[in-house]
C-alpha cells in the first residue's frame, strides 16, 4: 500500500514536504513504518524522539496501519 504521510515542524523540513508518499506492505505496523522512515530519512534518527499519529491519535508501535489511514509524523512538540 502507498500511504500519504503528513509531516510537521522539523520532520516536514527533513522530509522535504508536508505530505509524502511511502510504500509499505499491507498490514504493516507503526514500528515497521518507523523503520522505513528512518532508512529513507536518516536525519529523523537525530531527533530527540518522534511519534506516529494514526487518524489523529498517538499510535503504539505495534498498531497496524490500514490503507486510507491518516498517518502523521509528530516530532517533539513545543507549543505554548
Amino acid at each position: 500500500m502507498t500511504l500519504n504521510i503528513f509531516a510537521f515542524g522539523i520532520a516536514r523540513e527533513i522530509m522535504g514536504g508536508a505530505a509524502i508518499g511511502i510504500s509499505l506492505p499491507e498490514g504493516s505496523t507503526v514500528e515497521q513504518l518507523i523503520s522505513v522512515l528512518k532508512g529513507q530519512f536518516p536525519a529523523l534518527s537525530g531527533l530527540t524522539s518522534f511519534a506516529i499519529a494514526v487518524n489523529g491519535k498517538y499510535a503504539n508501535i505495534d498498531d497496524h496501519i490500514s490503507p486510507g489511514d491518516e498517518v502523521a509524523i509528530i516530532p517533539p512538540v513545543s507549543g505554548g
Partner: peptide, 21 residues
C-alpha cells in the same frame, strides 16, 4: 507542552531552530 502537536521555530538573527527537536 507535552502532548499537543504544535511546534515552534525560534528565528534568531543568525539562524533558526525547531524548539526541543
Amino acid at each position: 507542552k507535552q502532548t499537543v502537536p504544535i511546534w515552534k521555530k525560534e528565528v534568531f538573527e543568525d539562524g533558526e531552530i525547531w524548539v526541543a527537536a
